[in-house]
Design a binder for these strands. Sequence first.
DNA 1: CCATAATCCTGTACGC
DNA 2: TGCGTACAGGATTATG
Length: 323
Amino acid sequence: MPELPEVETVRAGLADHVLGRVVAGVDVHNPRTVRRLPGGAGQLADELTGTRLRAAVRRGKFLWLLLDDAAAGSDAPGAGSALLVHLGMSGQLLVRDRLTAEAGAEHPHLRARLHLAPDDSGRSLDADAAEAPGVPVVLDFVDQRTFGYLATDRLVATPDGAPGGLGAPDPLVPASAAHIGRDLLDPAVDLGVLARALRGRRSAVKRALLDQTLVSGVGNIYADEALWRARVHPEQPAPTLSARAARTVLESAAEVMRAALVAGGTSFDALYVNVNGASGYFDRSLEVYGREGEPCSRCGAPVRRASFMNRSSHFCSRCQRRR
DNA sequence: CCATAATCCTGTACGC
DNA sequence: TGCGTACAGGATTATG
């Protein structure tokens, strides 16, 4: 399931393979993919065609490509616009050169395809790119469970007081993602501020960790892993955490996500594939998630699974005592 | 402000 | 073999 490390892997892949290219056409195979746009597929095509992809940006699990829409003659004033992508549960972005893509069969869960013209912007050649900058490519959005989406969106300044955003200039974000907090790998994030905010929540610590408006990027898998590392029970009330424990939880989440990023992202059931089509393999390093009944690697007690928030929580009942 | 539940979706796993 | 059911889960919305 794409959480922050997986989305970051996709972002980096896009940065290598599609920046500088101009959208030459858009095919939407499933209208659900563009459900966030009132004008649907037509609106997406209208607002993307002719724009150049300028940068690949991520916050938490939200990913967007900045659009240079001068060429499209857009009459929309303001700070600019972006193509916002959320991968949901099973989204993938796959880049292939056009001839290869059109020679083979389409992926059964192909939801949308962007046709990207050659990069004529004169940027330096990426030696790792499977395709040359001068070759047309397609960017395929594949999504089995269709929780993901594509949407064009205008950029806005993050509102004052955005969680975790203290002390740094407010970045521009897509309007529909303006409520999403900074993530733990954001250089501007302030762990002290976040730890205080975490303890200020009157909910269970895991619920607070999963709240994307407080801190973004942590999903069910890394929440369980972070709490195991910090030796904190998922259902411990956040206000009962010591300041030190709250900070440890956040640092643990950052650590486990950095480790996953190095490994290329966690992968399950081959549902997640990075931008080049290579699966991540961090799932072999998970300590508790999906390991019900197995011995805790730290103390040997069996890993337990409990229902929480209509999800599963995995934790060691000996290492992670509820206080 | 906070919690809970429902909603969207499809493939897999499992019991019978 | 097949059929029904449970499960997986992110974000949003509704309701208490």
